[in-house]
């Protein structure tokens, strides 16, 4: 087929596309991801028993604020990286701000408590399982994000995969926050971050394989 014919063929079929297509699709992929993660959580671990009460406390929103912050930052990154030749942009600052916020809070809390309570505050009851649970809950979320991304054209596949993993990890961790009853910022800054970082790392490894076009 000659190139001119290909061009003629392509210009017979020009559905209009709107400017915000990437953002809208990635936002709906994120919602789908959250839905999938919630399903896994409900079937596997269930909600924490005192969820209604916990929603009136600071630590619950500290956790949610951190993971939602990472989710927003990840979504901003993915929205940029889905386009050819685009730099990651300001999503990085949102991620950095969320991380700085929770580590500062954790450090202040530790500084104000007695040294013999530090281990308990840092390790909580679930530090051995928390990162793995986040990883598993985020796996279906990751699939949904990749599904959303397939329609677009990332050119830096490992970086985009990492951003997709981070977004999925942020969503998974937010959902896991509905089960987890840890309440210290030091715990969240360490073990939540570890789980989400593992998601991003796996995303970076899988990106070049899954996102080719």
């Amino acid at each position: 087929m000659k190139t001119d014919e290909l061009i003629a063929l392509m210009s017979t079929d020009v559905a209009p596309v709107s400017a915000g297509a990437v953002g809208r699709r990635m936002a709906s992929a994120s919602l789908a991801a959250a839905g999938l993660a919630l399903m896994v959580l409900m079937v596997w671990l269930g909600l924490r028993h005192d969820l209604m009460g916990a929603m009136h406390t600071g630590p619950f929103w500290m956790k949610a604020g951190y993971t939602i912050g990472l989710t927003v930052g990840g979504l901003m990154l993915v929205e940029r990286l889905a386009r050819p030749g685009t730099a990651p942009g300001s999503g990085l600052w949102v991620l950095a701000a969320a991380f700085m916020g929770v580590t500062t809070l954790g450090a202040i809390n530790l500084a104000l408590s007695a040294p013999r309570q530090w281990a308990a505050a840092w390790l909580g009851d679930s530090w051995t399982v928390c990162p793995f649970r986040i990883l598993i809950i985020s796996a279906p979320a990751f699939a949904a994000i990749i599904w959303g991304l397939k329609r677009f054209a990332p050119t830096r596949l490992a970086l985009t995969g990492a951003a997709a993993g981070l977004l999925a990890g942020g969503i998974g961790a937010t959902i896991y926050g509905l089960h987890c009853n840890e309440s210290t910022a030091a715990f969240v800054a360490t073990w939540y971050t570890l789980g989400i970082a593992a998601c991003a790392g796996i995303g970076a490894l899988l990106g070049p394989r899954l996102l080719r076009w």
């Binding site: 392509m10 386009r83 050819p84 030749g85 677009f152 054209a153 050119t155 076009w213």
Partner: peptide, 28 residues
């Protein structure tokens, strides 16, 4: 590349210049 420019045109941000976008596709 032309096919990709056509099929992936949703991934173009109209606020950005077009040529660098198209060459990024070509480079990929």
């Amino acid at each position: 590349t032309l096919l990709a420019i056509h099929l992936k045109r949703e991934a173009y941000d109209p606020a950005q210049p077009f040529t660098p976008w198209a060459y990024a596709v070509a480079r990929y």
